[in-house]
Structures are given as structure tokens and as C-alpha cells.
Simulated scan of single mutants.
Amino acid sequence: TESKILPGSVDVVISNRPSSEILVDYHQCMDAQMYEKYMKAVLPLIAAAAPVGRQPILVIDNASIHNTVVAKIPTKSSSKQSLVDFLADHGVAASIFNLKDDLWKEVEDFINSRGGRNSMKKYLVDEYAATLGVKIVRLPPYHCQFSPIELIWNQLKSYLRSAGKTSDKLEVVRARAIEWLQNKCEADISWTYEHVLDIEEGIKNVMEQDTYSSDSECDTSESE
């Protein structure tokens, strides 16, 4: 939150995979099922912690484990039955005896009429969050600088490196991490938001300057 790590949200998992695998890619230890279980426990806490009159918002990145969809949107290579079922689910009658190309054209037109594939995607966790009044905002790929929590991760990793040794047992490291997160002071948390807002403002200024420069070039070209 803007003042502290949300009580009840801290969960540090120790993987039972071989250390050689963990060092290569931690994503082997974290999957969509674990994410969904965690979010179903934490989202009600987020909703309850929001001040009166303010909508709770959760910023996440676009990791694949965050993107389990409620229902898949068919593609051109989908079976005829999938195309017919998709249209039927959206109130459009179609026959399995139609040519597949005709069915796909009807599906494609329907998808485009609803703003395209991305607009029609419904994510499982996002839909659950919406029932609690929590809005989930996804960051563009490779834009982690817009998420305050990334600064906390960086501070936590620095703390763990300085507080222990590589020979420490994982249970000890886990306990240190939990204690550090639970005792993070309000000033440090507030700074992460201020830092992200500064980055946003800086990028806005650059974009505005680029737009101004582009407009000035156009004006010069027209006058010549």
C-alpha cells in the first residue's frame, strides 16, 4: 500500500526443486495455479484495505502466469466446432455444416466488432478482482520501472545479501525476508511511489517535447 506492506500478503515460498534448476530460472518454481491461489487470498485484503472513496488498484506485469484466460478466443486454425461454439456463446447462430473459411470470417468480423482480440480477452484473476472492486493494471512488457514493488524487491535482495551468507539455510533466509517486509517503514514505502511518479513525469515531458519538436518540423516544412 502507500504506507506499508499489506498485512497478510507476505508469502515466501521455498522450492523443492534442485538448486541447479532454481538458479537457472525461478519461473520453474512458480506457475499460474500458485499465482491464482495467492491472489484469491490477497485480493480480498486489498479490497478491505482501500480507504473509503478510493478504488483499490493492483499493478502487475505481463508474466504469462498472470494471464490465464476465462475462455480462449479461437484462431484461424481452430476447429469448426470451436468456431461454432464461440459464436454460439456470444449469441451468434452458426451451423457446423458451413465452410470453415466462412465460419472463420464470421468469427473474425465479430472479434473486430468488439475491438479486437486484446479487448475481448478476459483473465481469470482479473474477473475475480473485479467482483471485489479491485482494478488490475497491467504494465507493458519491459516496463517494470512503473511498479513500486520492484524497488522493494531490489531493497530486499540487497538486505538479504548483506545480512547473511550463502551457506545460510533457506528457512533462515525466508524468516529474514518476512521480518524485513513486515517491518518496512512508511517513509520507504512512500518513496517508492514518489520515485515511480517522477519516472512517469519524466517520460511525459520527453513525449511532449517530441510531439512539440515534430509539430515544429511540420510547421517549418509547410512554410517552406
Rank of each mutant, 00 (worst) to 15 (best):
E21I: 07
L23A: 14
D25C: 12
D25Q: 09
Y26I: 15
Y26H: 10
Q28N: 15
Q28F: 15
M30W: 14
D31Q: 03
D31P: 03
Q33C: 00
Q33K: 13
M34Q: 12
Y35R: 03
Y35K: 04
K37H: 12
K37I: 07
K37M: 06
Y38T: 05
Y38K: 05
L43H: 00
L43G: 00
L43Q: 02
L45N: 06
I46L: 13
A48R: 10
P51F: 11
P51C: 06
G53C: 03
R54L: 12
Q55H: 05
P56Y: 01
P56T: 01
I57W: 06
L58P: 00
L58Q: 08
L58F: 06
I60S: 01
D61V: 09
N62R: 12
N62K: 15
N62H: 11
A63S: 14
S64R: 14
I65D: 07
N67I: 03
V69H: 04
A71H: 15
K72Y: 04
I73Y: 01
I73E: 05
P74I: 04
P74S: 14
T75P: 00
S77W: 02
S78G: 09
S79H: 06
S79R: 09
S79Y: 03
K80M: 04
K80V: 03
K80W: 01
K80L: 00
S82I: 09
F86T: 01
A88Y: 07
D89C: 07
D89M: 07
D89T: 06
G91H: 09
A93R: 14
A94C: 04
A94I: 03
S95H: 11
F97W: 10
L99W: 03
L99M: 06
L99A: 14
K100L: 08
K100T: 13
D102E: 15
D102F: 11
L103S: 09
L103W: 07
W104L: 13
K105L: 15
E106S: 15
V107D: 02
I111N: 01
S113A: 10
R114N: 09
N118G: 11
K121L: 11
K122T: 13
Y123I: 11
Y123W: 10
L124E: 02
L124P: 02
V125Y: 00
V125S: 01
D126C: 13
Y128W: 08
A129N: 02
V134A: 01
V134R: 00
V134F: 00
K135N: 02
